[in-house]
Nucleic acid binder design. Sequence first.
DNA 1: CGACACATGTAACACGTTACATGATTTG
DNA 2: CAAATCATGTAACGTGTTACATGTGTCG
Lengths: 169, 169
Amino acid sequence: MSIRHGLLALLSSGPRYGYQLRVEFEASTGATWPLNIGQVYTTLSRLERDGLVAPGGADEQGRAVYTITEAGRDDLVRWFSTPVAQTDRPRDELAIKIAMAVAGGVDVAEVIHTQRAATMRALQELTRAKRAAAGGLAQRLVLDSLIFKAEAEQRWLDHCEAVSKEKNR
Amino acid sequence: MSIRHGLLALLSSGPRYGYQLRVEFEASTGATWPLNIGQVYTTLSRLERDGLVAPGGADEQGRAVYTITEAGRDDLVRWFSTPVAQTDRPRDELAIKIAMAVAGGVDVAEVIHTQRAATMRALQELTRAKRAAAGGLAQRLVLDSLIFKAEAEQRWLDHCEAVSKEKNR
DNA sequence: CGACACATGTAACACGTTACATGATTTG
DNA sequence: CAAATCATGTAACGTGTTACATGTGTCG
């Protein structure tokens, strides 16, 4: 539901056309998660189907603009005022992988090691991207979010290693 | 792909039937993300379709067991030896929400406040669950993962508040 | 002219999720 | 006996994702 509401949020400050939405979405959230243009159109169709946006004809250049509806604004208000709960977050693949490695007969230390190297590289890439500091505030915050998460992941991996070593004694 | 590989991992230490897989999956990863039993069967069908598991007839009690295939083991080895990259993680709904709030004309402080309260409650619930300490090592590590993440989220929210306040001066 | 950015859209698929239908077995 | 647990499966849907088809305008 992230893209859905992301596009809806962009539409809340005025009518937009598909291509523009992708540009603005990526400008806000950064190039972290590139948004396929096809996705924009399919999502717009679904938003229209659900009555949250309405096609607003075409603008001067003949581009197909969409406008947010009242129902769309309501939905958006609800989105912003409702916190993201643990339960509606997707399953964490890494946590499951480590859990399965611990439970099964897999070399946990090896899995942790591989992951740590990858996360380390990601972290370096992220701090590099942050120093470049091209985008606006929103984009920088998203970048920070990823950094905080990556750091937490490193700490957790250390923790996993320590605990699983301890167990093997 | 988490459930897919999770079930495959469980099957790697011997044939299992559907119901059993759900029990073991939840025993490993905890009640954090409850696994609907229907999901197990649909996932098993898809694994069979892809040749990663094979139906192994029925056991003494007439339960439909599945066995991992060679291709399945290969896939699993690949899964364990390949780190989870940033790019194949799902979009973070909270990050997008805050980014959109910052970009649009939404009361960011309010959104942050609501989220922080929810995350705080989740954190308390998690530490409570950890003290209860019912499960095995794997389950405890998953719990720790969630705790580390929640803590990182709190720090990030603080950071967002500080930065967006600064901007409004 | 050829490449590239702009612009729109459809078809098909993957995974995850829930609701529903169905029945056997166990246990209070 | 009734309720709960065990057990299997299907149908239908939602979102996200990619691949493909198509066309215009612009700039080197």
